[in-house]
Design a protein around this nucleic acid. Structure first.
Ligand SMILES: [Zn+2]
Ligand SMILES: [Zn+2]
Ligand SMILES: [Zn+2]
Ligand SMILES: [Zn+2]
Lengths: 154, 154
DNA sequence: CGCCTCTTGTTATACTATAACATCCGCGCT
DNA sequence: AGCGCGGATGTTATAGTATAACAAGAGGCG
């Protein structure tokens, strides 16, 4: 269970994600450049999913480029390397809550505050794919609804 | 198991989906107008997911309006009423393979030919949501990969 | 130095989706 | 018939998401 909806020491989320990203980059010969690192830090500031243009606005305000490819490329790098995930149902991006270990993520996504909890589950369509001869490469699992805080505010 | 990747009598797919839509509309006081019916028929022609603008081009060629809201509204009607589903990972739409009964659909989506098989599974995040106090309203489950035919062509 | 690769930046464009307003049509009511 | 109404379709205009193609700089290495 993730801590996105709990009170927790968020500083350790940030620190462990950054050090995991640094270690993974070093190990794979990838570069965690200032732009990429800052993009990851922006996502890590909260467990809320951000749109690419939200990220871009933040980057631009801090002196990076202002055009969409700047954000899309940095986000693409983070997603490809498993440091962030794309939430398909929101067309948005969130920092990975389990950096370091490769995993097939699934999410609880609050439609009100866009906070995202990352969960670990078994691939839910594996038997069906097996029966049909379908080769699964990636499975999107996103439960949309209301988080505890937003239920309370209803 | 759906028949999207099998040889099957596709005429019965079409006929049963259309009659289920007609029955459901009659029962709920909704109107399956010519535009909506034709949109559903277009989706039913194959088990391939179509983008809204693909559908719009077909509609325009047949004398309907040519502007995006024409397609988006018809698709919205079909999705809201359970006659079609949106595939989030493709931003595309596919006819429902189990019309009539309400269900929480899940999909096997071929990234090569965009064919979609609809499956029925248990809500995969229910225990996690329960533990966190998260109220699930809808769950997107889309396995992306290669269908049997496209695997063979690799 | 000259070449190569990677990263960042730009311009321009493509693709996806909705807000707001206009028109038309069928229906119930007077 | 004349009117008001809701729903469906149509339009214009705009918002939101994403990528292709090209230019320029940094660093490694012959
Ligand atoms: Zn945290
Ligand atoms: Zn919330
Ligand atoms: Zn069929
Ligand atoms: Zn295929």
């Amino acid at each position: 269970m993730s801590h996105a909806f709990d009170r927790h020491d968020h500083g350790t989320c940030i620190a462990s994600a950054l050090s995991a990203a640094e270690a993974a980059c070093a190990g794979r010969g990838m570069q965690l450049t200032p732009l990429r690192r800052r993009t990851l830090e922006i996502l890590l500031e909260s467990h809320v999913a951000l749109g690419a243009y939200d990220v871009l606005a933040r980057l631009e305000a801090e002196g990076f480029g202002s055009k969409p490819p700047v954000a899309y490329r940095a986000l693409g790098f983070l997603v490809e390397n498993g440091f962030a995930h794309r939430i398909e149902g929101l067309s948005a991006y969130v920092a990975c809550a389990r950096p370091g270990s490769p995993h097939d993520p699934s999410f609880l996504v609050c439609r009100s505050c866009r906070r995202v909890a990352e969960e670990e589950i078994q691939a839910p369509l594996a038997p069906e794919a097996e029966a049909e001869g379908f080769a699964i490469e990636r499975t999107v699992v996103e439960a949309q609804g209301l988080c505890p805080a937003c239920r309370g505010r209803a």
